[in-house]
Write a protein that binds this DNA or RNA. Structure first.
Length: 656
DNA sequence: GTCATGTATCAA
DNA sequence: TGATACATGACC
């Protein structure tokens, strides 16, 4: 076409900008308009932009592919989400500069999910897509994804036998139904195998599955079990730990629909899978499921959103149970997949609690019961020791109930010995403080003690091989009947056949942490450690028997029920919806005065720890969650349009 | 980053 | 009045 032809595209009354070199391009004859998600960090530009499809790129500009465009003067990456005949945009359309690759990496499902995730967590679509779609690897793309060729093995449910409703759950998946359940796993029945069996059943029904595990350590084990149960090539691994090429290869296999199962860490929750039939998550209380980058979404919630959108089955699994999982059971959305009490009691170790008294001939600082239990044991021993450096909160000196703010139930802190007691969320002063449970006026700040050194244990148990796991050196597996492992929570190594004795040291330290989820989080780590014990063997817990009933009875569901009640009373997630906004004090102060949903509680602002920023907490009933997120998105858009630095907005953060 | 548009400023 | 300069805001 001539230059005159180009000018005809310009609406009357507008002067055509002189075309830059190479910009004068003929538009495609069919559907010359492409709708794009442009990769910009600016919240007010979180919408689609239309560009002209040059005829030379006609074949390659397909929905889902990556392109380069000139956006606000600079070359920018973008995803094509569709093409059409015309645009609602008034002005001239800039052309797509080039197609990075015609590979449709952004599937329609991922686009819709990304939009929903951005909306719910008050973030932007490009932020989510940057997390969801791994960087391109041209070499990987050139090769076709290989679908599995081995015959699919028959549906099995052997691992599910101890759970009365387990085989039914698997059978329903195999039949193409979409059952939803929260599952209380038991020691000695490999959860990876049980989940793999559920996934196999799903694949039998012609559908796919997404399975999330907390970290790379779990991934290696689950990968091996999945390979065994599903057969070769039926699943791919997707985690940040994989090399870029492997990660992109796995992603493409899912996006192309070549492989039905994606297994991975939190980022896998966003991975494309064709005909989704099941989402599963193991140990959903692990905080590695909380994405540390904007928009700070949580893998469990993402998976639940996907299941709801696609009518897929759900398996929220763990030795422990979160209040979030329990709320799914309480609402009836998920079934409660538990073993009968007898089976449960038999599977877990026998838990005895000791107050930690050190008299009676035991070596210094080693509780007598621990000393005798380890001495009497004939197999591997696990000693879980709390990590140092917890930020601790105040509790009643007399009844040990955590001290909470009367106004908002937030944790109380005291800056110095003579300083006022204030709430860390809303800043309300609580001085003079009295305990709501027992009326005492005495506060205590739990003091974090020194970790017992490995040398002390080695001296106390000369016949043992003492090893440590935690911090920067985490052991995956240990061997030998004489091994004694000192591990921090979450770093416990596996041992073939399980530990003969499990010791949980100084449990009060974990309970003194300054966090809403102290009880849930501490119990999760204790249950996970107990699960490594041999069947019906011993566990010794050092702590106050009063607060450890759920642990003694190994009753994760009971604990979750109690925890959920507390969340109801305190309007915390999952019952309420919380937003935590951080920014410069004057900006946050202005936000506090805005009009929020009528039922909203505005807590703060208070100074954010370790920074000069201020923090505002907004708490609304769950039904107002979407409105709150939309309002916060509008605030973000307002600021980015005014070229102001972004605020940090987190919805239902796991910790803050 | 860059472009279009709006508003201020000044010489003719 | 019109040319020019500079600020603004949108970004296709």
């Amino acid at each position: 076409m001539t230059d005159d032809g180009q000018l005809e595209l310009v609406p009357a009354g507008r002067r055509a900008r002189p075309a830059r070199a190479g910009e004068s391009v003929e538009p495609a004859s069919e559907r010359p308009v492409a709708h794009l998600v442009v990769d910009t960090p600016l919240a007010h530009l979180d919408r689609l932009f239309d560009y002209a499809v040059p005829s030379a790129l006609d074949d390659e500009v397909v929905p889902g592919c990556r392109v380069k465009v000139r956006f606000a003067g600079r070359l920018t990456d973008a995803f094509v989400v569709g093409r059409s005949d015309d645009s609602v945009h008034e002005g001239t359309l800039a052309p797509i500069v080039k197609v990075i690759s015609p590979e449709p990496v952004l599937t329609p499902d991922t686009l819709a999910l990304g939009r929903a995730v951005a909306d719910r967590w008050a973030g932007t679509l490009p932020d989510v897509l940057r997390l969801a779609v791994p960087p391109r690897q041209a070499r990987v793309e050139a090769k076709p994804s290989v679908p599995p060729s081995s015959p699919l093995s028959d549906v099995v449910d052997v691992t599910w036998q101890p759970w009365p409703d387990g085989p039914g759950f698997v059978a329903a998946l195999a039949a193409g139904a979409s059952p939803r359940a929260c599952w209380s796993a038991l020691p000695h029945r490999d959860p990876a195998r049980a989940v793999a069996e559920a996934v196999l059943a799903t694949v039998h029904s012609g559908r796919g599955a997404v399975v999330c595990v907390p970290d790379a350590r779990d991934l290696a084990h689950w990968d091996a079990v999945f390979a065994e149960v599903l057969g070769p090539g039926r699943h791919v691994l997707l985690s940040a730990g994989e090399k870029p090429a492997a990660r992109y290869r796995a992603y493409l296999a899912g996006a192309r629909g070549a492989v039905p199962v994606v297994l991975g860490t939190r980022s896998a929750a966003l991975a494309p899978v064709d005909r989704l039939g099941l989402v599963a998550i193991w140990d959903d209380g692990d905080d590695s499921y909380a994405e540390p980058r904007a928009p700070y979404q949580h893998a469990r919630e993402v998976l639940l959103m996907r299941a709801a959108r696609h009518g897929a089955g759900v398996l929220v699994a763990g030795f422990a149970r979160t209040a979030e999982a329990q709320s799914l059971v309480a609402s009836g959305w998920c079934a409660d997949l538990v073993a009968d009490p007898t089976t449960r009691r038999r599977a877990w170790p026998q838990v005895e609690v000791t107050d930690g008294s050190v008299d009676g001939g035991a070596p210094a600082r080693l509780p007598r019961e621990v000393f005798s239990a380890v001495r009497a044991s004939e197999g591997p021993v696990l000693v879980q020791v709390p990590r140092r450096g917890y930020r601790t909160s105040l509790a009643c000196q007399d009844c040990r109930t955590p001290a909470r703010c009367r106004a908002c139930e937030g944790p109380l802190v005291q800056a110095g010995r003579e300083a006022a007691v204030t709430c860390r969320w809303c800043g309300t002063s609580a001085s003079p403080w009295t305990c709501g449970e027992c009326g005492s006026g005495r506060l205590r700040a739990p003091v974090v003690g020194q970790l017992r050194t490995a040398e002390e244990y080695a001296a106390a148990f000369p016949s043992r091989t003492v090893v440590t796991s935690g911090g920067t050196s985490v052991l995956d597996q240990v061997e030998g009947d004489d091994v004694l492992v000192l591990a921090t929570p979450g770093a416990e190594p596996r041992v073939a056949g399980g530990y003969d004795v499990v010791v949980l040291m100084d449990t009060w330290l974990a309970l003194g942490r300054d966090d809403v989820r102290v009880e849930e989080e501490a119990h999760r780590r204790w249950f996970n450690a107990l699960a490594l014990g041999r069947e019906r063997r011993r566990a010794v817990v050092v702590g106050d028997p009063q607060g450890l009933q759920a642990l003694v009875r190994v009753d994760p569901v009971g604990l979750a029920e109690r925890e959920l009640e507390i969340r109801e009373q305190t309007h915390l997630p999952p019952v309420g919806r919380l937003a935590v906004v951080e920014g410069p004090p004057e900006v946050v102060a202005e936000l506090a005065d805005r009009t929020w949903p009528p039922a909203a509680e505005v807590l703060g602002p208070v100074p954010a720890p370790d920074s000069s920023l201020a923090r505002l907490v907004l708490r609304v009933p769950r039904r107002d969650g979407a409105i709150l997120s939309a309002q916060l998105r509008a605030v973000a858009a307002e600021r980015s349009a005014a070229k102001l630095p972004p605020l940090r907005i987190r919805i239902d953060p796991h910790r803050f």
